[in-house]
């Protein structure tokens, strides 16, 4: 039943003034098809946690299990949508989306069929021959999501994918992402510092503490979808979550000022 499991993940960095503990004994389970949001103050180690799930960073302790099997290296079964998209500027939109399929050796006809299907889903069909710099920030993130979905991953990992967007574009992408989730039933782990975004999107929100990051509290969210960011239950839940992490945010702000 559990798709993804983290057991006792601990990660520290050696710095000039000793050891910096980033993640402290984090364990969590994500069910198949579940949409989990991880919230916490900036710099708390959310991205590190996601990188560890993706296999892009290694923890000192603990293990990551996918379908009950331990995973170490990075692989398209846990596909990451990066904060700034990380699209390749030397490729067209179509070539970007089919990059992973090409790497996997999917033959051309099949590859283009899959790619075009996801481009259509993200309303990008008209732009398949555009280069990345010709797109708006919102379109770039839609390409990045299409690129992630095209690989048909077991788990889709999203690292603050909407942080750089204006509010209108973000609202639109919130709707699209919920739509995709309900259609594909993908397991999604979504990291954000935006509490309201987490309440809008997730089946379950995990609030992290600041340095070292631990899971402070879990919030199951059972409101019907599609939700909008200004829905009153979203706003109320966000208030509740924020009350829980307010101290952590303040600690983050004051410690980051001292540095």
């Amino acid at each position: 039943m559990s798709k993804l499991e983290l057991r006792g993940i601990t990660k520290y960095y050696e710095t000039g003034n000793g050891r910096l503990l980033a993640l402290n004994n984090i364990s969590l389970t994500v069910k198949d098809g579940e949409f989990v949001c991880i919230v916490g103050p900036s710099g708390c180690g959310k991205t590190t946690l996601l990188n560890i799930i993706a296999g892009l960073e290694k923890p000192q302790e603990g293990e990551v299990l996918l379908d009950g099997r331990q995973v170490n290296d990075t692989s398209p079964d846990r596909l990451m949508v990066f904060q700034e998209g990380a699209l390749f500027p030397w490729l067209t939109v179509l070539q970007n989306v089919e990059f992973g399929l090409r790497t996997a050796g999917v033959e051309k006809g099949k590859r283009q069929e899959i790619t075009r299907r996801y481009l259509e889903m993200m309303h990008l069909s008209k732009f398949e021959n555009s280069y990345v710099h010709q797109l708006s920030t919102g379109m770039k993130q839609r390409v990045a999501i299409a690129r992630g979905l095209a690989m048909d991953p077991q788990v889709l990992l999203m690292d603050e994918p909407f942080a750089a967007l204006d509010a209108q574009t973000r609202d639109m992408l919130h709707a699209e992402l919920q739509n995709i989730h309900s259609r594909t039933r993908k397991t999604i782990v979504f990291v954000t510092h935006n509490v309201r975004e987490s309440a809008c999107l997730a089946d379950r929100v995990l609030a992290l503490t600041y340095r070292p990051a631990r899971i402070k509290k879990e919030f199951p969210i059972n409101f019907p979808r599609p939700r909008q960011i200004e829905d009153h239950f979203v706003v109320d839940t966000a208030k509740m979550i924020f009350a829980e992490i307010k101290d952590e945010v303040q600690r983050a702000v004051s410690e980051q000022n001292v540095r």
Partner: peptide
């Protein structure tokens, strides 16, 4: 490094 991470993540 993000390009390299993204490509490695996609299996390259």
């Amino acid at each position: 490094p993000t390009y390299i991470n993204a490509a490695r993540n996609m299996g390259a």
